[in-house]
Design a protein around this nucleic acid. Structure first.
Length: 820
DNA sequence: GAAGTGGATATACC
DNA sequence: ACTGGTATATCCACTTC
């Protein structure tokens, strides 16, 4: 039997003591296929230097005789081989120790306390990762599979008869295929419930969207007006229908939004209450819920069907580039699709009239529609991320960038003949976390002022280009100085790096080259998959520097991180000096970018100068023009003593604004202050003086004093970063959160708390005593908003023109101060 | 009880 | 705990006189 196959979901099982991979995917004619395969399981014992051949033979024999009785399983070492390998770039002799079951590797490794053995590695990868590395059956790529159909055979304990697939195949051989296209079957869903606390209310309805399929199932209230609404008897029947529909559609991907944290835990809790089995897995199993880490939400994994929680992937892959300040379905849908959620005013189901129910059904269905559409939009990225990281899409969609970097490294090690480094243990992580911060990037202190005609240069992929050019990594760091090695002087010690290219910088170099290649091809002809691939490589490169300094990294090397920042400071300062020497004037610089005054020099000349600068840069380091700007403004800090860093605004000749750091771009300031500041900046940068901005400001201050501003514009939004009880300092947003708790509103860490500062009786002095929730009636506190929102937002901007904004704010107290 | 200061907290920049 | 360091700013908590 031969067929084209694309692996989608990976799992494994034990049969007669051995591990078997059970991979679910599709054939080219759209059939649901399961393949069963096995691979060698082994780990490495790295030998100490200067061990004689005879000693190795004796050791191998001894290891080969190891037998264990663990976890109710008798196991033994099956085979031992000697290999020439590399570990952290060094040539080593290592024993490849084969076992029957992957789960035994750790226990066997524990038996290897022999003095000839230096290190034990490669037993902590997880069977699926190990299988993918061994057999190169990469997720979401097409293969030609040769094998034997299991037709209700008793092999593997009759696994195929209990699996709801079209075909089950025992693999003989795997060959790469050229096929590219894959359109998965997708089912999006969303639930509504009365109480937002998990499992504490009733499930009211569930909506589904798939290709040519839409449905809302409900039991509270029935309607004949909407043809997609299906009515059932009660909540128990609703859950049973949910199970039936997932089984009937049997999608490759079951997609939701925040479904790891809300929908699945909710359905599980309600199903348990009614004693209903959520047997939606292809093998008839219920979703497996795993808790991952403290405070973080767990995951819901379904056998054979990949559950995707869009929120998770969006947070890692997109959030840093998104405009939206919150990652709710509404905001994300607006940004991705230009379309938000349907309007619906929530109330308890007992208080909804029949019109209300119809609106509720539409609302619920539309959430699934948005979820489905967002999935379609991000699918190319998810596909390419998975192909690049070579881990199952379930994991890739949930992993953070550090994990992605590590997966990429692990799956590419074999090309370098490298044995994988181990994951740090609990104690080691503890030690690493105690490490003092190393010195980071250089930030130039600007002089406050309004400037004309600026240019900005910046380094392309600064960190990756430094790591590659100077060969920085754990494996290239030397014990001591060697001939031709690079010496970096860190604050408390000197470190050295070999010139011999290491696998980490080499991989990074490949990543950058691939990114460049796809980007170039994209410029010639747009292609959504290439765009996604280019993006995956870009994010991977950007995260690689942070990975080196991350305490959880296998290839953790803070010395390499510190060296990268040290080198970065040297280069940026050198370029600043060269720019100034050429007759330009540096105004500002942060990490990898430099803003300078053109000083009557032409753009043409500036670009030629850039070329000259580039010719002096080593390796793959490259400086490019970010843009030219008509005007730019830098302000002082609030104390007025220094030019403020990380806060500036620029405008191009085409009047395009670029604002950084100002309150305008901070979500924890009220909309009014942000709007005023934004307009003031725009007017000043457009005109080159403050006159128009000043008139505008006076007008707005008057409106605030006359209470003409809608209280909606006064809302301050601040995120809860930890459980309320853990706050040592009771700030306004904590008070607001406490008020929400009293009202039984669901709050969690991560919730964005919305409140305003209201007029209250004058005895209370602290800001937090004047906090009111967004829906609480009250009047905004004029003095607070003038003095603590508007004034700070514009004070330092106007100071550039020697204008004191206090003179137009003029609250009672300010007057007495103003007399000085 | 006003004034000053350090710590806790949130968010942005790169 | 789930990439890194640098920086600003607010408001509370506490000390001091």
């Amino acid at each position: 039997m031969k067929l084209d196959f694309i692996p989608v979901d990976y799992d494994y099982f034990d049969f007669e003591g051995r591990n078997f991979a059970k991979v679910i995917g599709r054939s080219s004619n759209g059939k649901r296929v399961c393949i069963i395969d096995s691979c060698d399981v082994y780990f490495w014992a790295i030998l100490k230097e200067k061990i004689s051949q005879k000693e190795i033979e004796r050791l191998s024999e001894k290891i080969g005789e190891i037998q264990l009785d663990v976890k109710g399983r008798r196991t033994k070492v099956e085979k031992v081989e000697l290999h020439n390998k590399k570990f952290l770039g060094n040539e080593v002799k290592a024993l490849k120790i084969f076992a029957t079951n992957y789960k035994d590797l750790h226990d066997i490794a524990d038996q290897l306390g022999m003095p000839e053995i230096e290190k034990r590695r490669g037993y902590d990868l997880g069977f699926i990762s190990h299988y993918i590395m061994e057999k190169k059956l990469n997720p979401l790529n097409w293969y030609e599979i040769n094998g034997e159909i299991l037709n209700n055979s008793l092999e593997f304990g009759g696994i195929d008869s209990s699996l709801n697939v079209d075909l089950c195949i025992k693999v003989d051989s795997i060959k790469q295929s050229d096929k590219q296209n894959f359109s998965p079957k997708v089912l999006a869903f969303d639930i509504e419930a009365d109480d937002l606390k998990i499992g504490e209310g009733e499930l009211l309805m569930v909506s589904f969207i798939s290709e040519n399929f839409k449905k809302v199932i409900t039991w509270k209230k029935c309607t004949k007006k909407l043809d997609y609404v299906e009515c059932v008897k009660d909540e128990a029947e609703l859950i049973e229908r949910f199970v039936e529909i997932v089984k009937k559609i049997s999608p490759d991907f079951l997609v939701g939004y925040f479904t790891d944290g809300f929908d699945f835990p909710y359905i599980k809790a309600r199903a348990m209450k009614h004693k209903i089995k959520l047997d939606i897995g292809l093998d008839g199993s219920q979703p497996r819920f795993s808790k991952s880490g403290v405070g973080r939400f767990g995951t819901a994994k379904i056998d054979g069907i990949v559950h995707i929680d869009l929120l998770r992937f969006i947070e890692t892959a997109y959030s840093q580039y998104m405009q939206s300040e919150v990652m709710s379905l509404n905001e994300v849908a607006n940004e991705f699709l230009g379309e938000g959620k349907k309007e619906f005013e929530f109330r308890h189901s007992s208080k909804i009239d029949s019109d209300g129910w119809e609106k509720y059904f539409e609302y619920n269905l539309h959430d699934s529609v948005l979820t489905y559409k967002i999935f379609e939009k991000i699918w190319p990225d998810l596909l390419e991320f998975t192909r690049v990281m070579q881990e199952p899409v379930f994991d890739v969609s949930r992993n953070g960038m550090s994990r992605n970097v590590e997966d990429y490294i692990l799956h590419n090690l074999s090309r370098f003949n490298e044995i994988p480094e181990r994951r740090p243990g609990y104690d080691e992580i503890g030690e690493r976390k105690k490490r003092e911060k190393y010195v980071g990037a250089f930030v130039f202190e600007p002089t406050a002022g309004l400037y004309q005609n600026l240019g900005i240069f910046d380094f392309t992929s600064y960190w990756p280009s430094i790591i590659v050019t100077f060969n920085l990594s754990k494996s290239t760091m030397l014990e001591k100085k060697e001939k031709n090695s690079l010496e970096v002087d860190l604050k408390d010690k000197k470190v050295y790096f070999s010139k011999k290219p290491g696998f980490f910088p080499e991989m990074l170099k490949e990543i950058i080259e691939k990114r460049k290649k796809y980007k170039k091809e994209l410029a010639e002809k747009f292609d959504v998959i290439k765009k996604a691939r280019s993006n995956a490589f870009k994010l991977l490169a950007n995260a690689s520097y942070g990975y080196l300094g991350f305490f959880g990294a296998r290839y953790y090397c803070p010395e390499a991180s510190a060296s990268a920042t040290s080198i970065s400071r040297d280069f940026i300062k050198e370029i600043i000096a060269k720019i100034n020497n050429e007759g330009y004037k540096t105004i500002y610089s942060d990490t990898d970018s430099i803003a300078f005054l053109l000083n009557e020099k032409s753009k043409q000349k500036t670009l030629e100068f850039l070329k000259k600068l580039n010719s002096g840069l080593p390796g793959i380091m490259e400086l490019e023009l970010e843009d030219f700007y008509k005007r730019g403004i830098w302000v002082t800090t609030r104390t007025g003593e220094f030019g403020a860093k990380k806060k500036y605004a620029l405008i191009t000749e085409k009047d395009k604004l670029k604002i950084r750091g100002f309150e305008t771009v901070r979500r924890d300031w009220c909309a009014l202050a942000r709007e005023i500041q934004n307009n003031v900046l725009l007017m000043i940068l457009e005109d080159g003086d403050e006159k128009r901005a000043l008139e505008y400001l006076k007008k707005l201050v008057k409106e605030v004093k006359e209470r003409k501003i809608n209280v909606k514009k006064m809302m301050i939004r601040t995120q809860l970063k930890k459980p309320i009880s853990e706050y040592k300092s009771i700030t306004p947003h904590v008070v607001a959160a406490q008020k929400m708790l009293e009202k039984e509103m669901p709050i969690d860490m991560g919730t964005l708390i919305e409140y305003y500062i209201a007029e209250t009786d004058s005895k209370k002095k602290l800001v937090r005593d004047k906090v009111k929730l967004s829906d609480e009636p009250g009047e905004y506190n004029i003095e607070y908003y003038l003095k603590h929102q508007i004034l700070p937002a514009v004070e330092n901007i106007m100071q550039v023109f020697n204008f004191d904004v206090n003179t137009i704010i003029e609250t009672k107290k300010q007057k007495t101060l103003g007399e000085f």
